[in-house]
Design a protein around this nucleic acid. Structure first.
Length: 526
DNA sequence: GGGGCTGTTGTACGT
DNA sequence: CACGTACAACAGCCC
């Protein structure tokens, strides 16, 4: 008799779950386990909304497993500490789990594999979180370096051949009936009020779980035209209802298989001549994720500036007041403050809204480190995904992948394109809701009488702008230029033995400035 | 091996 | 107002 533990971490689903499938097929008794690792149950690190999302996901998983004669075993504690006793108590001989390529997980899993070996437990890992096993990119590239931009990545991706088909969903016919002696009331999914988190003020806008994930995917897939024509840059960062799919939280936790979504999209594309293509299409979005996962898997110190070989070294400031003002919606720029309010209260903001606030915090206005911004996003986002979040912060701060630092989002002009009347600002910053359209993006320009009539005086009921965007964005471009030049000079020194191309003379005098001192998606739009 | 070309998920400002 | 253009860069590829 084989007894297996299937260890859920990401991959919180029954469909396209090869590791769970193996356990179900090979063992006569399967314990589906989720470990509530105290590393994550930390309100400073994982926000309340994402923790609630996780617990909802676990509840859904438990319900689904019960539907096929099994159940979920939630175990509190550190995996390396808890596994030995579980192996012993349950006489386990097989441990299955989905491969995780993030640094914390790699280290944790290595440790657990060692423990399993000591306990005589066979370990089986399956890569099913990304479209391909990430190791295949390295293997295919061979001696040549892995791509650092999207186009070349696409070529590499294509060279790997077709995306693997999904494996069969684990059903009642496959899953052994649970014959364990563990009482039903033990190892249950905790409710939020037994955790370090306060109860939810409102139900999650995007409920956790595989069931919700598949329902959301199906609702979008039904809009074939919309799917086929989808181009990310043409969607709106500040619509009142999300202009994109909001499948990202489900992909992050693996409630939805990226391969399943990929193949469902391919079916629609096949029947839609002239469909959108990467990088802007929905396939393109999955490929951005894939690209960034590959980078996170292969680049050392990926989530830091120092010691990260693909990251520009920029002398960011470290100003706790500015960072807090940005995080807490006190910059005095309504577009920025509204976005940060949506982030904190709903756990999801549009991709381009992320661009706007990330640019503002880093190279655009406040000159704070992208690492500090990434930590804030990582706390609040339901879809906080280590590789994707890190990569996008480097992108927006012109630290890697993207370098056109003179292309700077305006905290005033950018939002106006898709929301000229400021409806989005009025929703998330109700103190400004009575401002005339003319001043909603720049309330400090409104005459005093207008401010009083709107019931919101700038400097009293709403902050004055913490920086003058026109001025600081110009200054910061000079600082970026200086940082790029300094690094180019530095790398020339490093490689003094190999002759290098001379830096072209700057067209303008390098400004020697201050040195180094950052539910609701039911209907398509009419 | 270097020089040149292209593409790249923007904005402000001119006509 | 729509459109064209310049603006402080880079990776990857071609020749």
């Amino acid at each position: 008799m084989t007894t297996a533990i299937h260890w859920f971490r990401k991959g919180l689903r029954l469909h396209d779950n090869p590791a769970l499938l193996q356990a179900a097929k090979e063992a006569q008794q399967v314990y589906p386990v989720f470990m509530l690792d105290p590393h994550f149950a930390n309100p400073a690190k994982v926000g309340q909304l994402r923790y609630a999302f996780l617990l909802e996901t676990l509840s859904d998983l438990d319900t689904q497993l019960k539907g096929i004669g099994s159940r979920l075993y939630v175990v509190q504690g550190n995996p390396a500490e808890r596994f030995p006793e579980l192996f012993r108590e349950w006489s386990v001989s097989l441990l299955t789990f989905e491969t995780d390529t993030e640094p914390y997980a790699k280290k944790r899993d290595q440790e657990v594999c060692k423990i399993a070996e000591t306990c005589g437990v066979t370990v089986a890992q399956h890569a099913s979180h990304t479209l391909h096993n990430l190791d295949r990119y390295e293997a295919k590239a061979g001696a040549s370096p892995l791509p650092k931009s999207y186009g070349p990545f696409l070529k590499l991706f294509d060279s790997l051949g077709a995306v693997p088909q999904c494996v069969e969903t684990v059903t009642v016919d496959i899953m052994p009936q649970d014959g364990s002696a563990v009482p039903a009331g033990e190892h249950t999914v905790p409710s939020l009020d037994t955790t370090p988190y306060p109860p939810l003020a409102n139900p999650l806008l995007y409920p956790g779980g595989e069931t919700a994930a598949l329902a959301r995917m199906q609702l979008h897939l039904a809009r074939k035209q919309w799917i086929a024509k989808f181009e990310k840059p043409k969607t709106s960062p500040n619509s009142l209802e999300p202009s994109t799919t909001v499948l990202s939280p489900y992909l992050k936790f693996g409630c939805l298989s990226s391969r399943l979504f990929y193949h469902k999209l391919a079916e629609i594309y096949k029947a839609s001549p002239g469909h959108a293509k990467p990088p802007v299409s929905l396939h393109g979005q999955l490929l951005w994720r894939e690209f960034f996962y590959m980078c996170g898997h292969t680049v050392p110190h990926f989530d830091r500036m120092e010691g990260n070989p693909i990251c520009r070294q920029v002398p960011w400031d470290s100003n706790a007041q500015l960072l807090a003002a940005w995080e807490e919606s006190r910059t005095g720029y309504p577009f920025i403050d509204a976005i940060m309010t949506q982030l904190r209260t709903e756990g999801w903001i549009h991709h381009l809204a992320r661009h706007a606030v990330a640019c503002f915090l880093t190279r655009g206005d406040l000159w704070q480190s992208w690492e500090a911004g990434a930590v804030v996003f990582d706390k609040y986002l339901l879809d906080a995904d280590w590789s994707v979040n890190t990569a996008n912060w480097m992108w927006l701060s012109c630290s890697s992948f993207f370098y056109q630092y003179f292309r700077c989002y305006s905290p005033v002009a950018f939002g106006k394109k898709t929301d000229p009347t400021g409806a989005y600002i009025r929703k998330y910053l109700p103190q400004l809701k009575n401002y005339p359209d003319k001043y909603i993006y720049e309330p400090w320009l409104a005459p005093k009488a207008v401010q009083e009539k709107a019931g919101c005086v700038v400097g009293c009921d709403y902050p004055k702008p913490i920086v003058d965007h026109k001025q600081v964005s110009k200054d910061n471009m000079d600082r970026m230029k200086a940082a790029y030049a300094a690094q180019a000079a530095g790398s020339d020194d490093d490689a003094a033995d190999t002759p290098k191309k001379k830096k072209p003379a700057p067209k303008r005098k390098p400004a020697v400035k201050t040195q180094g001192i950052e539910a609701a998606f039911k209907r398509a739009k009419k």
